[in-house]
Lab assay of single mutants.
Amino acid sequence: DVEEQIRRLEEVLKKNQPVTWNGTTYTDPNEIKKVIEELRKSM
């Protein structure tokens, strides 16, 4: 579920933690925001 994935990513973003997405680890909050944007567009 895309909305659930977005929620999880936003939680990680709030905690300022790195997130691994599709085999890539993002540590930059701006990169994580881009991933969230892409997910929103795909909905």
Rank of each mutant, 00 (worst) to 15 (best):
K33F: 09
I36K: 00
L9F: 09
E37C: 07
N16K: 12
G23M: 01
N22G: 12
K34V: 07
R40H: 04
E4N: 08
E31T: 05
K15H: 13
Q17T: 09
D28M: 03
K15D: 08
K41N: 12
E10F: 06
K15F: 13
L9T: 01
T24P: 00
P18Q: 10
V19M: 08
K15Q: 13
E38S: 11
Q17G: 10
M43P: 04
L39F: 03
E38N: 11
R8V: 14
L39M: 06
V12S: 15
T27I: 08
E3S: 09
S42H: 11
L39P: 00
W21N: 02
E3T: 08
K15P: 01
D1H: 11
P29L: 06
K41L: 14
P29M: 13
P18E: 12
E31D: 13
T25N: 03
P29R: 05
R7L: 10
E31A: 09
D1Q: 11
V12I: 13
R40G: 02
T25W: 11
V35H: 03
T24W: 06
G23K: 01
V12W: 11
T20D: 14
K41R: 14
V2D: 03
E11L: 09
E11P: 01
T24K: 14
V2K: 06
P18L: 05
G23E: 04
Q17C: 09
Y26E: 01
R8Q: 14
N16P: 05
Q5L: 15
Q5W: 15
K15V: 06
Q17E: 15
L39T: 01
Y26P: 00
D1G: 12
E37V: 07
Y26W: 04
N16D: 06
E11G: 05
E3V: 11
W21V: 12
V12D: 12
E3R: 10
Q5T: 14
N30K: 11
K14I: 12
E11S: 08
E38Y: 15
N30T: 11
R7P: 01
E31Y: 04
V19L: 12
S42N: 09
D28E: 08
T25H: 05
T27P: 02
G23H: 02
G23D: 05
L9E: 00
N30I: 13
E3G: 10
E3A: 13
V2R: 05
T27M: 06
E11T: 07
V35E: 02
E31I: 06
K33G: 06
D1T: 13
D28W: 02
N30A: 14
Q5M: 14
N22F: 12
T20Q: 14
I32R: 00
